[in-house]
Simulated scan of single mutants.
Amino acid sequence: MAEQKTGRGRLTTWIVIMVAVAFLALSFYNYHRSQKEETTAVKEVTPVPVTVVKVEEGEMERLLETSGDLRSRVNVYVFPKISGRVIEKILVDKGDRVKKGQLLVILDASLVKARMERANAAMDAVRSRLELLEKDQKRLEFLFAHKAAPRQQLDRISAQYKAAAAGLKEAEAARREIQVLLADHAIKAEIDGVVAERFFDPGNLSDTKKPLLRLSDESLMKIELVAPETDFPRLRLGMPADFQLAAYPGRIFHASLVKMNPVFDPATRTVKLELQAANDGHLLRSGMYARVKLYMGRQNVLAIPREALLRLPGSGSYYVFVVENGLAHQRNVKVGLQQGERAAVISGLNPGE
Rank of each mutant, 00 (worst) to 15 (best):
K5R: 14
T6R: 12
G9W: 11
T12D: 10
F28V: 10
R33H: 14
K36L: 11
K36A: 14
P49G: 04
V52W: 01
E56P: 07
L64T: 04
T66N: 09
P80W: 09
D93E: 11
K94L: 02
R97W: 08
D108I: 00
V112D: 02
V112Q: 00
A114T: 12
M123H: 09
L130V: 09
L130K: 08
E131P: 04
F142A: 14
H146T: 13
H146R: 12
Q152M: 09
R156S: 14
I157H: 03
I157K: 01
K162A: 13
K162V: 10
K169S: 12
A174F: 03
R175M: 13
R176P: 00
D184T: 01
I187R: 04
N204K: 14
L212K: 01
R214F: 03
L235F: 00
D242V: 02
P249A: 03
G250W: 02
S256M: 08
V258M: 06
F264A: 15
V271G: 00
V271M: 05
A277T: 13
H282F: 15
L284F: 01
R291D: 14
Y295F: 14
E307M: 04
V320A: 02
G326H: 00
R331A: 09
R331I: 01
Q339D: 15
Q339I: 15
R342K: 10
A344C: 13
A344Y: 13
E353G: 10
